[in-house]
Amino acid sequence: MKAAGVLMIALAIAVAVVSLVFNCQAEGRSLALANGTTVPMKCFWSAMAEIAVAVPLLGVGGMLALSQGRETQRTLAVTGGILGAFTMLIPTVLIGVCANPDHDCNRIMLPTTLMAGTLIIAVSLITLFISEGRTEASAA
């Protein structure tokens, strides 16, 4: 499970860093209102939410790398999978990113978080499958 944990940590870091660097606010782009004030675009809020998901994911990855118990590994795998799903849902369904396909949030942040989310879910499923198998083997 060490490999799965390390992979999850790497993916969580990738999600956090990419979200932090490649949102429109970080690149100096914001929405100008009629009264002259500026507000962040929605990719900024997506990026903040992604960081909020990446932090617990980092913890899940760390615990998965260190855990020995099958039950713990199963619980961590399920938690990782749910967090992976949220990684994908935030920039697509829950908050979204800018509509312009040329913005970096669309070109880099969105695909990276979707790719990372897919991999996190895949790693979680494989972990769950392996720990399930081992539990059955030890029970037999």
């Binding site: 396909p101 040329d102 070109r107 880099i108 969105l110 695909p111 790719m115 897919t118």
Partner: peptide, 13 residues
Amino acid sequence: ALAVYLFRNLLVS
């Protein structure tokens, strides 16, 4: 396939 699909805009630019 997933990477090419997701990063197609980045590839083009």
